[in-house]
Amino acid sequence: MSDKDKGVGFLDKIRTWARVNSPWALHYNSGSCNGCDIEILATLTPRYDVERFGIKLQGSPRHADVLICTGPVTMQSRDRLRRIYEQMPEPKFVVVVGSCGISGGVFQGCYNVLGGIEKVIPVDMYIPGCPPKPEAIIFGIVQLLEALKTGRKPEAVAVIPEPQFENKA
């Protein structure tokens, strides 16, 4: 390995460290019922407080590392979603929150709904639920950050916790 490569590796390490410790997220609702959106907002508020992981909700796509999408994609928001994704700088990651963003959910078959987010832009992470609880959203984002540490795009991670049903017999 030459000295030049070592320098690049070092810079990459710094970049990854910075990215993992403070991912800036952008939220876009492409046709959601609002349920997931308020749960995402709830993760920022005192009880869940994702800012302790350095996650900050950002207003501009040009500042964002992670795009958090909710809802199925409607005809009218399709172009806008694609545009926001293209405006984000590389490397970018897309997290889909909620069942609708995964498959269209209950809105499957409605005339103005294209289906899940993946029909329009590539998706890295899915968080299922209608809507997922804030704990699930945090778990999903932390899984994404864990994957980022290795520098690769995340592989499939089960967001479903271990079943906790007690046997009452």
């Binding site: 409607t74 009218q76 409605c110 103005n112």
Partner: peptide, 10 residues
């Protein structure tokens, strides 16, 4: 209309 999903028809 950005979140018009066509629920009434659905």
């Amino acid at each position: 209309g950005y979140v018009h999903r066509g629920i009434e028809k659905g």
